[in-house]
Every structure is written in C-alpha cells, then in structure tokens.
Design a protein around this nucleic acid. Structure first.
Length: 852
RNA sequence: GCCGAUGUGGUGGAAUUGGUAGACACAGCAGACUUAAAAUCUGUUGAUCCUCGGAUCGUGCGGGUUCAAGUCCCGCCGUCGGUACCA
C-alpha cells in the first residue's frame, strides 16, 4: 500500500467516533415499555438481509446495501423517528460444517471466529446498528424459538375453507384418526424422491442442487423419508398478498412465476377399465387429442402396458429413473418415449388414442398424465413429428399465421359442439360439459412444490421430535432448545439418517423412543430473524406482543419491515419462505400483519475493476479493510453510494474512491488548514457572518435536494449536489460558519465520522456552533424563499433549435416574453424571410418559435 | 425459447419525467505554486467544420407521434441477469 500522506487524519478520528457511538449507545433504540422509550415518535424499521458470516470476510459488495440503509437510518432519526436498524448472523450452514469435517474443530468455534471478524469489519465502517439487538441463529436462545416455530407448524393444519392455518387440536376434536391428522399437518413426513448427495451426505432442496453440483458434488435421486412443509397450501395467498407490497415489479413477477399458477381442467380418460386423469390448460382442444402421455413413474403404467411392449417400457422407465429432474430437462433436447400398447378413450368422442410414456411429462406436476394435442402444443407437436402420430387441427389460427403448430387463441373447429367458439368460450363450455357428465372439473395447478425441510447435517437446528412405535411426536416446549450433542468427528455417517445418527446416547431415550436425527436447513433461522430483532433478548416468547405491534404493526399497506434491502439472489427462496412462515404465524395470531416486508429494494452487484464478477479466481476482489486503511471509512461509504444508482450493476474503481476521498478532503479544508507547525487550525476564511443570498441559495437547494434524494434512495445525485455546494463555499473569501455547519449536517448520514469531527472542532472555535453531535440534532429545514431566483435564463428556440438566451425576471408575463424573443437579433436571423406560424412559451423554461 | 433489466462522451454516471443532452466525478490536456516531484489550485475537455462570431451532427439501429423526443409509440439489434419440456 502506498505511503502517500493522508489528506486528513481519518485514521485518528474514525475509530474515536466509532468508540464514542458504541460507548454512548448512540444508535440503540428502546422498546415500548423500556426506559427512555418515546411513544410519541413514529417507528421506522430498516433491515439489511441477514449475512452469512463466511470465512472470507466482508467484500465491498456487502457495504453497498448496508451504507444505503445506514444513511436512511441516520436520516430518519434526524427526522424524529424511532429507528430500528439491527444486525446479526445467519450462522448455521454447510461451509462451517465442511470446515469441521476437515479439521475436527467444532463448527461453533469457526463460526465464532467468522462472526467476530464480520462484526469488526462492520464496526470499522461506522454503521449505526443497534448492537444490543445482535442475534445469531446458532445461539441456544435463538434455536429455541426456531424450534418453537417449527412446532407451531407441526401443530397446525391449513383450513381450506377459511384459507388459514388452524391449530391441529381442532381436528382431534372432530374424531379424525392419527394418520388423517398427520396427513394434514403443515410440517409432515413424506417418502419422496429427493436429491441425495452421497459425498455431502445430505439431501438438498431442488433449488440447491445446481449450486452444489457446480462445486463438484454429486447429486442423485432417491426416495427417502423426509420432513416437508406444506407451503403449497399457501400458494394462492402468496400470490394475492404480494400485490399491494412496494416491491420491484420484476421480483414480484419472479415470485409469481415461481409459484406458477395455471388454470385448467382435469379430464378423465378410460384405459381398459381404469380411470386416468389428465390435467390440461386447454380443455378446448380435447377434440384434437391424438395420443396420451403418462410420466414414466405413473402408477398405472405397469397395468396398462401390453405384454409385447413390456420389455421396452421397463427399459425406458429404468433409463429415466437414473436421471435427475435436471438431466431429464437439460439433456433432453430430443423427445424420447415408448408406446405402452394401451389405448385411452377420449371422453368427448369415444375415440381410441394410443398411450405413451415419455419423460417430458413429469410425475410431480398436475396428475402426471397429459392428453397430447400436437396441433396446438409445441412439445406435443415435436413428439408427434418424431413418432409419426397424427395431428388434428381444432383451433383456427388467425389470418396470416402459417405455423404448423399454433398455441394461441383462435376459433374452435373440428370440435363438434365447440365449433365457432373463441378459445375462452370453448374452455368454459367444455369444462361445464365435463362437469355435467362427471368426466372432469375445473382445476388450478401450481408449480410450487412443498418445501423439503430436513437435512442430514450436524450444524443446524435439530428437530424437536421423537419417534415412538414408528410414530413421530413433538417434545415438550419446556425441553427447548434441543441442542445437538458434541461429536468426536463431523464426517457424514453415509447413511441417510444423517450425522446425528452417530450420537447413540443422544438419540436413544430411556423409554425406548428415539430422537429425530435430521436437522433443519439454513432457511429456518433466516425465516423469522426480522421478528427476533424486535425483541432480541426475550426469554419468554419469540417476540412480545408490544414489541411486535410497535415495530411490525400497521395495515397491509404499511405493516412489517418498512425497508428491506438486499440482493436479488434471495428474490424467490428466502423471501418466499419467510412470507410463508409469517403467514402461518399471522393465522395463529402471533404476529399482526400478513406480510413481513413492506418495501423491498435490491442493490445491484458490484463488479471487479475488470468488469467481471468479483471472485477469488479472477483476483479482483476488493477487501473493505484495505480501502478503509488507505482512504478511510467515510470515503468507502461515500464511494459505494456515488458509484451510481443503488439497484444497478456497476464496476468498482479505485480512482473513483480517490475522487470522493478528494471531495472529503476539500470539506475538511473548508474548515481547517495547516499552520507552520503542521497542525490543523481553523480556516481563517471562516466567519460568523450572515450568508449572502447566493450562498443561502446553494445551501438550501442542497438541503432540499439531499432530503428528496434520500427519500428516493438516489444517493449518487445527493452526493453530487453536496460536491457542488462544497465547491461554491470554497470559492468564497469569507465563508459563513452557519452554511458550513448545514453542509456538514446533510453530509453526516453519508460520512458520519468526518462531519462529527469537523462539527466538534467548529464548536470549540465558534460559540454559535452547537457541540451536540449532529446525529442528535433535527434535520435542517430548507427555506423555499431562499430558492427563488431574481433572474432566470430562458432559452429561445427557432424550430426546436436553441438560438438565443434571455435573462428575465421569473414572473414576466407570457406576452412580454414572446415579444422579447421575437425582437432578438439572433432569432431574426433565422426567421427572416419566413412566416411565423406559432410561438410556444413554456414558463420558466423556453420559447419556441415555429417559422417556415 | 420465455421473463426481467439495460444501451447516453475515453470512463462511472446526470437530465425537474416531453422542454437548453452530458450535472457531478474519473481519466486526459494546458497553466499556477515548487529547485523538483507529489498534493493543491485555475482553465479546458462529445464529434466535425470554422473567418473564433458561430455552424452542422450527436443519447444502440430503423421508422412514427409532437412546436419540441434520451424520455412516448411501432419494429429490430447488442449486453447482463433469471428461468426452462409445468401440459
């Protein structure tokens, strides 16, 4: 690192102010009922996405969102809000366990080391977190409540009628059997084909498969007994209740598509006496069905397969079972399939159509069976082409559409009683017809699957469940938290039971029952952390009603976290899971709003200086520690915000850091200069004088722009305005102290250290300057009357091109402006010889003369 | 393929939402200070032409609407991100 002389002594005062904030608890906020709580202030809850404290420490991408929320926090505090701005650690997870497997060191130790480092790095940036509320998902008092919430899920079911979770005890009263009840729990056990990774020794969620495959681990399909959460019951509400939220449209769409609602019909076909139900979104094309496809795993395949086809069918089934969902989709550019020998009867016309099995039909979606209409479905068309199956056109494509396969809406043809109807009409009519005859019904399907919630890991929350006589049951709440036992080593047991299976003493209970050996996925802890922050030290409840009501309260337009900032990588999974848990807690009366996050903002990725993604392998990772050492925390914060709009992807530039560093140095020198001894003394140009009109204008325009830009989270333009203001003040021969203090005040949320330091020094030199911390003073009010101009510049255009500029009073009447514009010599040069057709006057902006 | 972003000087990016394109920075160039360098300060910096007053062109490309388009409409192209046989 270059030993260039520092332009201002940030290394001295930045740690000083950080220590001061920590000691005075400047950014700790009391809860309702606590000492010092001011109930008259409105609340504002600003949240950063929960970080995983990785061994690599912070990189410059982290402080991007953190600085944005920090500015908002400090600003809102000055505007008289009680601001909740917490930080904590999503500290369970595979990397710490992988480390434990390699070294034999307990993952707790590694986790602690990493969180200590993260905390140190964050504190070095001067963030206004309320560290009294710091939480850690791995701490026993947090685990306790994660497990408690799991038990809420376990002890609830989804009531279809009210679309709400209800206590499972209500079903017990209705005389349902044990099995029937277990089948309704929101947390349930199922034997499902899962993604088992032998070398990781765990099952992975569908969404996680890619990530671990990329890291070189193998993943295969295997049916195993797993805990699942019934998120699919909430599919409709997860779509509907997303609507009013202040989230980016793209993210809303992403979630909606992920949930994947599609409306259609189930239709019953008959295959040699057996009923087979297919799902279709195009029941109107039923007359065009020329074959049927079952998923290779469909339970009826064996029954309907003829002896001649048996061998081929079984071979195909085996081939498919070897492939994962992924391989089936990724590698299968070419359609494959086998004829079963069986025929299905189309219920609308009694036609016999061949039944095939093919892997382009998934068992997990709809009914695992489709009617194939090659004339109006791309996939069916490709399949029919390959296997020479006939194509019957049943929808008239609009004029000019010559595609062989037309999937759009049109007019029904070759369809008996549907002929002549438009696609929506035909859909309605056929569905009604099917329902009348008892051959089918209107159905809604979702892509969303139930959430696979168990992992075979050590470093996660154990399930608060024991098994007795083959049945699961919850342990008593008083036994929470249930912590994992210490182990000799953390290597996977190799069995799908997971690592905890090794801890015999822990598993086997005196009464012969056994503990569940699965643990929860990392998502568990991060699903509700924002609630815990509201009441982080409560040992009687996961959150108190008072704290919940205050920090999370509101209606469906205002309730929940007021501002949630994080990366797009959590657009679907984390945000969907957290919303699901929140809704269950809401239904059960534990929280007061249906949605957890009212406003969501995604910060854009910061790329390396070479324009590529920051990564160790490219050697382009920038460590914030180095930037702080060289330019100070304020420079880093300011640069992160000055780079460009928050949501945008943008490349890092050390030259850019230097630019904002120079700006901060200019602010410093506005207040101080070095004397002969090299000491910093008050700039002699500073004086306790009333600012001139134009100085007031700059300063007050700055207040206005900065506050508007903070509200709009347009931090880069706020900073450029403060640069303009600084440049203007620097040019003055006599600089009014009050103007400088105002500048420091509006700059404070962005660069808190240097501004507090300068204010403190000014307070010593000038009686007029308050020695109170800027952080504690109310945001300055701008005066609109200072912004009014005596004279404005008005552009005169001829046919849209600027030809002259007028300097006039802002309230000059239109007619006068017009006359003045037409009188201009420069304008005349362009209008001479032409007829003036029209003159447009836009007050305060321009005059456009149309002439030809 | 589909969905979503995005395209403005050498670079990061501004532009009151239809009204002077290029604010603010970075880099460059010239000058001041200095024995010298760094730092700092001042000026200059979209392109082309120029009689130094200015003229013409210019926001990915092609059309259109309008007195006026980076901004609105239609059709393309490029880059980035997500997703993929969901019937």
């Amino acid at each position: 690192m270059s030993e260039r002389r520092k332009q201002y002594p940030f290394a001295e005062f930045e740690p000083k102010w950080q220590a001061c904030w920590e000691e005075k608890k400047t950014f700790s906020v009391p809860n309702p009922g606590d000492e010092g709580f001011d109930a008259s202030k409105p609340k504002y809850y600003v949240l950063d996405m929960f970080p995983y404290p990785s061994g690599a420490g912070l990189h410059v991408g982290h402080p991007e969102g953190y600085t944005a929320t920090d500015i908002i926090t400090r600003y809102k505090q000055m505007r008289g809000f009680n601001v909740l701005h917490p930080m904590g650690w999503d500290a369970f997870g595979l990397p710490a366990e992988q480390h434990a497997i390699k070294t034999g060191e307990h993952p707790r130790i590694n986790t602690e080391r990493n969180t200590d480092n993260f905390r140190r790095q964050l504190k070095a940036l001067g963030f206004a977190y309320d560290w009294d509320r710091e939480i850690n998902t791995t701490s026993p008092d947090y685990v306790k409540w994660t497990q408690w919430i799991f038990l809420q899920l376990y002890n609830s079911y989804f009531d279809e009628e009210t679309q709400k979770a209800r206590p499972i005890s209500e079903l017990e009263g209705k005389g349902l059997s044990r099995e029937e009840i277990d089948d309704k729990r929101l947390a349930f056990v199922a034997d499902t084909p899962v993604n088992w990774s032998p070398d990781l020794g765990t099952v992975l969620a569908n969404e996680e498969v890619d990530e671990w495959r990329e890291k070189g681990h193998t993943v295969e399909r295997r049916p195993l007994r797993q805990w699942m959460l019934r998120i699919t019951d909430y599919a409709q509400r997860l779509i509907d209740e997303l609507e009013p939220l202040d989230w980016p449209d793209g993210i809303k769409q992403l979630q909606t598509n992920w949930i994947g609602r599609s409306e259609g019909a189930e239709v019953d076909f008959e295959i040699s006496g057996e009923k087979v139900t297919v799902f279709t979104t195009r029941p109107d094309t039923l007359f065009g069905a020329t074959y049927m496809v079952l998923a290779p795993e469909h339970p009826l395949v064996a029954q309907i397969t003829t002896t001649e086809q048996k061998e081929a069918v079984e071979a195909y089934q085996k081939e498919c079972s070897m492939k994962s969902d992924l391989e089936r989709t990724e590698l299968a550019k070419e359609k494959t399939g086998v004829f079963t020998g069986g025929f299905a009867i189309n219920p609308v016309n009694g036609e016999q159509i061949p039944v095939w099995i093919a892997d382009y039909v998934m068992m997990g979606y709809g009914t695992g069976a489709i009617m194939a209409v090659p004339a109006h479905d791309e996939r069916d068309f490709a399949f029919a082409q390959k296997f020479a199956i006939s194509v019957i056109e049943v929808v008239q494509a609009p004029e000019g559409n010559e595609d062989e396969c037309f999937a759009g809406n049109g007019i029904a043809i070759n369809s008996d009683f549907l002929n002549g109807l438009s696609t929506p009409e035909a859909k309605a009519k056929i569905t009604e017809w099917l329902e009348e005859k008892g051959l089918g019904k209107k159905t809604i399907n979702f892509k969303l699957r139930d959430w696979l919630f168990s992992r075979q890991r050590y470093w996660g929350e154990p399930f608060p469940i024991i098994w007795k006589d083959g049945q699961h049951q919850a342990i008593d709440e008083s036994e929470l938290p249930l912590l994992a036992p210490e182990l000799e080593d953390y290597k996977p047991s190799g069995s799908p039971e997971g690592v905890l299976a090794k801890a015999i003493d822990w598993i086997e209970l005196p009464d012969g029952s056994r503990r569940e050996t699965n643990t929860m996925p990392q998502w568990g802890g991060s699903c509700w952390y924002y609630l815990r922050y509201c009441d982080a030290r409560n040992s009687d409840a996961f959150i108190s009603d008072e704290a919940e009501n205050y920090w999370m309260g509101g209606d469906d337009q205002t309730g929940g976290v007021d501002l949630y900032v994080g990366g797009t990588e959590h657009a679907v999974l984390h945000l969907l899971y957290a919303r699901f848990w929140h809704k269950v807690l809401f239904d059960l009366g534990h929280v007061s709003t249906p949605e957890p996050f009212q406003k969501l903002v995604n910060q854009g990725l910061i790329m390396g200086e070479d324009g590529r993604k920051m990564s160790k392998s490219f050697g382009n990772v920038v460590n914030p520690d180095d930037v702080v050492a060289q330019y100070g925390a304020d420079s880093l914060r300011l640069y992160e915000m000055f780079m460009g709009p928050l949501e945008q992807v943008k490349p890092w530039s050390m030259k850019g850091v230097e630019g904002v560093y120079r700006f901060l140095a200019r602010v410093w020198r506005l207040v101080l200069e070095t004397n002969q001894e090299g000491e910093w003394v008050i700039n002699p140009k500073l004086a306790d004088i009333d600012p001139e009109k134009r100085t007031n204008k700059t300063v007050h325009a700055t207040i206005k722009k900065v506050q508007n830009d903070i509200d709009a989270m347009s931090f880069n333009t706020a900073i450029s305005q403060m640069m303009v203001c600084t440049n203007d003040l620097t040019k003055l021969d006599q600089i009014p102290v009050s103007s400088v203090v105002t500048l420091l005040h509006v700059l404070n949320p962005f660069a808190p250290h240097i501004t507090e330091e300068l204010n403190a020094r000014l307070a010593v030199a000038f009686d007029s300057v308050s020695a109170d911390e800027l952080a504690h003073r109310p945001w300055p009010e701008f005066r609109e009357d200072f912004l009014i101009e005596d004279e404005i510049e008005l552009v005169v255009q001829v046919n849209g091109k600027v030809r002259d500029k007028l300097h006039i009073s802002p309230d000059m009447p239109k007619e006068e402006i017009e006359a003045l514009a037409l009188a201009s010599e420069k304008v005349k040069a362009f209008t001479d010889g032409n007829t003036i057709r029209k003159v447009i006057v836009v007050p305060g902006r321009l005059v456009n003369i149309v002439a030809n």
